[in-house]
Structure formats: structure tokens, C-alpha cells
């Protein structure tokens, strides 16, 4: 992916840049808001990573103006302000995701990659496919190799999210936010248990495991 990082703190910018480069992406960096807007408009980026507090033009204004000018690349806000109302402000300004500092590198990579994928699958789709798994979104049916798999509604949504991001790492926080719509972390390992139940249903009777745990990061459904 081709990613533009707009972050005034140089240490933070080079950290983000290093993390994303190591994950195999091409990265451009700028430290000023106004420069960021110019670059975002001029270049064809797959995703923007924008700090909220920037010199010359703050992140919220930058993304709002970028959207008003017809810019369509997905944007991820990075900010030290992480409360729910800050998040809502960010999404209202036209951001697609919001990540509070400090964050784990794997969390950043997972979220940026999830953004890039969303961009591609913009058209309404009625079915998903990941390896041997097939999901019919209208009939709400899941099959693996033609064998029907019975899922609870929540398990269905969990699998749907994993399938939409098949091949990518998805973190626990992302699942809590996107599948359960919670913006806090329960201390109990609730997500792990849900994943292991889902794994029990989709992988149990098959030789090859599709749902993998990525140590220290999250989960990945094999594409």
C-alpha cells in the first residue's frame, strides 16, 4: 500500500514510518498540516495516517478539507486524545478509523491494512469467500468445502469481519470496536474465548486450521 503519514513529532513519524515500511508498505512522511493536505490531494495514496495536533493546520481540519475537496482515500487519526467523544469528532470530520496513542505497532499495521481493504470492496457484496470458507450474506449461511456450519448470530458477525479482512491481522481491540461496538477493554479474555468457540466450529472437523492466533497481536483468517 501507498501510505501518507502526517505527524509533527519526528520520533513518532519515523516510528510509524518504520513500522509500516517493515510491513511492506510504501510510505511518505510530512510534519506539517498544510503540506499534508497538499500532498494528499496531489498523490494517489491508499491510506492517510493523520495526527490530530499539527502545526499550520490541525488534523481534523485537514481531513475535513480533504473530504470537501473530493479526496476519497481512507484516513486514520492518530491521537493522544482517546476518549469516546474525541473519537466521534474524528469520525465526524471524515476519518475512517481512530487510534489512540500510545499503540502497539501491530495494532497500527492491522488497522491501516483494514482501511486499504475497505477501499477496494466498496461495491455492495452478497457473499464472501476465504479459502475453503464461503459466506452467503443474504441467506446468512456459512459453508466450508460445501459442509454447512451452524453459527450463532454473533459468531456469524465475528466471522464476517474476519472474512472481510482475510489474510490480515485483526487485533482484539479492533474486534471489540467493530463487532461489539465497545470502546473499552474488558480485563477478562472474553474475545479469546469467542474466537476459540468460532475456531471450534470452523476448524474442528478439518485437517487444516484457517483461524490463526498471531502472538502478541491478534488473529488472522487464512485467505
Amino acid at each position: 500500500m501507498n501510505i501518507l503519514i502526517i505527524e509533527d513529532d519526528e520520533d513518532m513519524a519515523s516510528f510509524v514510518s518504520k513500522v509500516l515500511t517493515e510491513a511492506g508498505h510504501v510510505v511518505d512522511t510530512t510534519h506539517r498540516g498544510d503540506m499534508g493536505l497538499t500532498l494528499a490531494r496531489a498523490g494517489d495514496f491508499d491510506a492517510l495516517v493523520v495526527d490530530r495536533m499539527l502545526p499550520e493546520k490541525d488534523g481534523l481540519t485537514l481531513v475535513r478539507e480533504y473530504r470537501e475537496g473530493g479526496g476519497g482515500s481512507p484516513a486514520l487519526f492518530l491521537s493522544a486524545l482517546g476518549e469516546v467523544d474525541h473519537r466521534v469528532e474524528g469520525l465526524k470530520a471524515g476519518g475512517d478509523d481512530y487510534l489512540a496513542k500510545p499503540f502497539a505497532p501491530s495494532e497500527l499495521v492491522a488497522r491501516v491494512e483494514a482501511l486499504g481493504r475497505r477501499q477496494i470492496s466498496e461495491a455492495p457484496i452478497t457473499s464472501l469467500k476465504a479459502g475453503e470458507l464461503e459466506m452467503d450474506l443474504l441467506a446468512r449461511k456459512v459453508t466450508r468445502n460445501g459442509h454447512k456450519i451452524d453459527l450463532q448470530p454473533r459468531e456469524f458477525r465475528l466471522l464476517e469481519y474476519l472474512m472481510r479482512h482475510a489474510g490480515q491481522v485483526v487485533t482484539r481491540t479492533m474486534l471489540l470496536e467493530k463487532v461489539w461496538d465497545y470502546h473499552f477493554d474488558p480485563q477478562t479474555n472474553v474475545i479469546d474465548v469467542h474466537i476459540s468457540r468460532l475456531r471450534g466450529k470452523i476448524d474442528k472437523d478439518f485437517d487444516e486450521a484457517l483461524l490463526h492466533t498471531v502472538r502478541g497481536a491478534g488473529y488472522r483468517l487464512q485467505a
Binding site: 461489539w180 479474555n189 472474553v190
Partner: peptide, 26 residues
């Protein structure tokens, strides 16, 4: 706090029960 709105407690509680139930069982 955030903005106060009419919140469906039955739905919220059901969702939380569903979230924690597997962890309890485990």
C-alpha cells in the same frame, strides 16, 4: 461524560451477557 441519550438497557445487558458467557464457561 459523553452525550446522554435514551439507551436500551435490555439490549446492552443481553450483549454483555453474550460477551461474558463463554469466558465464564471456560
Amino acid at each position: 461524560g459523553g452525550p446522554m441519550t435514551r439507551t436500551n438497557i435490555s439490549g446492552l445487558a443481553g450483549q454483555l451477557a453474550e460477551l461474558f458467557e463463554p469466558a465464564c464457561e471456560e
